[in-house]
Simulated assay, not measured.
Amino acid sequence: MIVEAVMLQVKSGYEQEYEEAFAKASTIISSISGYISHELQRCIEVKGRYLLLVKWETLEDHTIGFRQSEQYEEWKQLLHHFYDPFPVVEHFEKVSLMK
């Protein structure tokens, strides 16, 4: 399993509209093969800042399965115009800790 982590900055004054669009977009991402779960968190200190965490079975489920799909085009139309600057997406894997 990998975690996609994205810090999002939404244009000032569009936060409510963004959250409504994200709720619609959630059905898109959750329909993709390899998707496990996602959550969107609103920053307390910085207005318009959000943290998106998406769990995928594999990196390719996100980078190929989702990013190269027709559903991604719909996701982009719903959400990408809200971001300034455009976000950087990073992927993480769990670190196994030895005892």
Score class of each variant (00 low, 15 high):
residue 73 E to K: 14
residue 76 K to A: 14
residue 73 E to S: 11
residue 88 V to C: 10
residue 57 E to S: 03
residue 88 V to P: 01
residue 83 Y to H: 12
residue 91 H to K: 05
residue 75 W to P: 00
residue 77 Q to H: 15
residue 62 H to C: 04
residue 86 F to R: 13
residue 77 Q to N: 15
residue 77 Q to F: 12
residue 88 V to N: 07
residue 81 H to S: 14
residue 73 E to F: 06
residue 58 T to E: 11
residue 85 P to I: 10
residue 76 K to G: 13
residue 93 E to G: 07
residue 63 T to Q: 05
residue 85 P to R: 11
residue 78 L to A: 14
residue 77 Q to I: 12
residue 87 P to S: 07
residue 71 Q to W: 02
residue 83 Y to N: 06
residue 74 E to G: 01
residue 87 P to Y: 01
residue 86 F to T: 14
residue 60 E to W: 02
residue 89 V to C: 03
residue 59 L to T: 03
residue 83 Y to T: 03
residue 70 E to N: 13
residue 58 T to C: 13
residue 60 E to M: 08
residue 89 V to G: 00
residue 64 I to N: 10
residue 81 H to A: 12
residue 92 F to W: 09
residue 91 H to S: 06
residue 67 R to V: 01
residue 83 Y to I: 03
residue 76 K to P: 06
residue 58 T to G: 06
residue 96 S to Y: 06
residue 93 E to I: 07
residue 73 E to I: 10
residue 78 L to D: 05
residue 72 Y to A: 08
residue 90 E to Q: 07
residue 92 F to I: 00
residue 61 D to E: 06
residue 87 P to H: 03
residue 89 V to N: 01
residue 86 F to Y: 12
residue 90 E to T: 14
residue 94 K to E: 13
residue 72 Y to H: 09
residue 66 F to W: 00
residue 77 Q to C: 08
residue 70 E to I: 14
residue 73 E to C: 08
residue 62 H to I: 00
residue 70 E to V: 11
residue 60 E to L: 07
residue 62 H to Q: 10
residue 79 L to H: 09
residue 73 E to T: 13
residue 79 L to G: 10
residue 65 G to K: 03
residue 88 V to D: 06
residue 77 Q to S: 15
residue 81 H to V: 08
residue 63 T to C: 03
residue 71 Q to T: 08
residue 66 F to T: 01
residue 73 E to R: 15
residue 58 T to H: 12
residue 90 E to W: 04
residue 62 H to R: 14
residue 89 V to R: 01
residue 72 Y to E: 08
residue 61 D to R: 02
residue 77 Q to T: 13
residue 95 V to T: 12
residue 95 V to W: 08
residue 68 Q to A: 07
residue 94 K to P: 04
residue 76 K to N: 15
residue 78 L to P: 03
residue 76 K to V: 15
residue 83 Y to D: 01
residue 85 P to Y: 06
residue 78 L to I: 09
residue 74 E to A: 11
residue 95 V to H: 08
residue 82 F to A: 09
residue 81 H to Y: 15
residue 82 F to C: 12
residue 72 Y to V: 04
residue 68 Q to W: 04
residue 58 T to V: 07
residue 75 W to H: 15
residue 89 V to D: 00
residue 80 H to R: 13
residue 95 V to D: 09
residue 96 S to K: 05
residue 76 K to C: 15
residue 63 T to N: 09
residue 72 Y to M: 07
residue 80 H to F: 14
residue 63 T to P: 04
residue 69 S to L: 05
residue 78 L to V: 07
residue 86 F to Q: 15
residue 93 E to N: 13
residue 86 F to D: 11
residue 62 H to K: 13
residue 77 Q to W: 08
residue 91 H to N: 02
residue 69 S to H: 02
residue 89 V to F: 11
residue 57 E to G: 02
residue 68 Q to I: 02
residue 61 D to N: 15
residue 61 D to Q: 05
residue 68 Q to Y: 08
residue 76 K to F: 09
residue 96 S to F: 05
residue 60 E to I: 06
residue 59 L to R: 00
residue 65 G to Q: 00
residue 87 P to N: 10
residue 87 P to K: 01
residue 69 S to T: 05
residue 69 S to G: 05
residue 86 F to S: 13
residue 69 S to D: 05
residue 71 Q to D: 10
residue 79 L to K: 13
residue 84 D to L: 14
residue 95 V to Y: 06
residue 83 Y to L: 09
residue 94 K to W: 03
residue 59 L to I: 12
residue 96 S to E: 12
residue 93 E to Y: 04
